[in-house]
Write a protein that binds this DNA or RNA. Structure first.
Length: 382
DNA sequence: AGGAGCTACACGAG
DNA sequence: CTCGTGTAGCTCCT
């Protein structure tokens, strides 16, 4: 009786059950076991080699990041993000542009970490390019010694913070992004002051705790720069994002075995999947849009609808629609503020064509009961 | 470093 | 659908 009243009329999506779509997206136990085994073996061996090398990287720690470790990976465990976190005592951050996300790094005094001196460029700025290159060389040398799987290092992408590995073993193909990350224990820069608006959602204490955590910087070059000099770094909040997704409830017990079940992660998974599928069909047109846009819109949605009751598992269709409508708004306006750096727009005017294109495609899906969700899932197409 | 204890999740049985 | 079980990952402890 109650169950009938609670069940959605599915006005949004007609006869399509989002629950059924969602169940197609979960990772198989066997696949996870196989993939994690391979990845963990390879990464452990690499870390051992990187640490033992010459002292440069001997203090790195491993941190799983991104969708696999946030448990919102869809379809297959075939992409892993691993941050190699390197503590640095003191750094001076100077904004490299007006985004508030990209910085030049210098040492106020001589660094405690003497081995970092060799990575300074002519101006005394820490060179992301040089550090990444050194790490890349160690990894390239070490993968040759890996026996239990076929591991190759993919070609360098300009300005990318990642060293991408490809692991092949029988029928499995996995890509692992290794991301060199600097960790500095100092207060967050001014550009983040008005970001992370989670007071209503996770609370003021949680916000304070987050902002007391270290700053992470990754070796990412700013594309706006006229010449890629390889000496800018970008703030990364992967550690905070992971903490928010894995502990996403307003109440402590949200989604725990004896607590209320919410559909926040379900919504994120669905929109991630929708974008993935659309990107497969329209690779070129959607070049500028990535899963981080979806994730950012997700955090804004969580902040806008902070209550666990706003995300009842039984209201999946309705919740997904609200989240989707907000994302469409962002696309139409070509305005999506970085969740931690509000003045930094992730959908700049140059991306307007992509934004408009995606907005049209999503509207089309919405008005036709998501045909792309109903096509049978094909592994080879991924 | 290694392990105990915990959680989230997939999945099979009923 | 609900429940029990097994596994990966994480935290905390020594």
């Amino acid at each position: 009786m109650v169950a009938v009243a609670v069940r959605q009329p599915s006005s949004v999506v007609g006869s399509l059950r989002l629950r059924d779509v969602l169940s197609q997206l979960s990772l198989g136990r066997q696949d996870v076991s196989e993939a994690s085994g391979l990845v963990n073996n390879v990464v452990s061996q690499l870390i051992q080699a990187i640490r033992s090398k010459d002292g440069t990287f001997n203090s790195i720690e491993r941190l799983g990041a991104g969708s696999y470790y946030e448990r919102v990976k869809t379809s297959e465990p075939n992409e892993f993000d691993i941050m190699l976190v390197m503590p640095v005592a003191r750094l001076q951050l100077d904004e490299s542009d007006d985004t508030g996300a990209y910085y030049y790094l210098t040492f106020k005094r001589n660094p405690k970490e003497k081995h970092l001196l060799e990575f300074l460029d002519e101006d005394g700025k820490l060179s992301a390019f040089k550090m990444l290159q050194a790490l890349r060389e160690i990894i390239k040398r070490e993968v040759k010694h890996i026996k239990h799987a076929e591991v190759t290092v993919k070609r360098k992408k300009a300005g990318s913070p990642a060293i991408t590995l490809e692991i092949k073993h029988s029928t499995t193909e996995i890509s692992v992004d290794i991301i060199l990350t600097l960790e500095v224990q100092q207060s967050w820069p001014p550009s983040t002051q008005d970001g992370l608006k989670i007071e209503q959602w996770l609370g003021t204490k949680v916000r304070r705790d987050f902002r007391n955590k270290s700053i992470y910087l990754v070796a990412k070059q700013n594309k706006e720069e006229k010449v890629l000099r390889g000496n800018t770094w970008r703030l990364s909040f992967s550690h905070i994002e992971k903490a928010m997704i894995n502990n996403h409830g307003q109440s402590k017990t949200c989604c725990e075995s004896d607590g209320p079940k919410c559909c926040r992660k379900a919504c994120l998974k669905l929109l991630k999947y929708l974008l993935e599928r659309l990107k497969m069909e329209h690779t070129k047109e959607l070049e500028k849009i990535c899963s981080y846009h979806v994730k950012t819109a997700f955090f804004h949605s969580c902040a806008m609808w902070p209550n666990d009751t706003d995300w009842h598992l039984g209201d999946l269709d309705h919740c997904f629609q609200k989240y989707l409508s907000y994302f469409l708004d962002c696309l139409r306006k070509s305005e999506l503020p970085h969740f931690f750096i509000p003045k930094y727009n992730l959908l700049s005017q140059q991306d307007k064509a992509s934004s408009n294109f995606l907005s049209r495609k999503i509207n089309n899906q919405l008005n036709n009961r998501f045909p792309i969700f109903q096509e049978s899932y094909c592994k080879q197409c991924l």
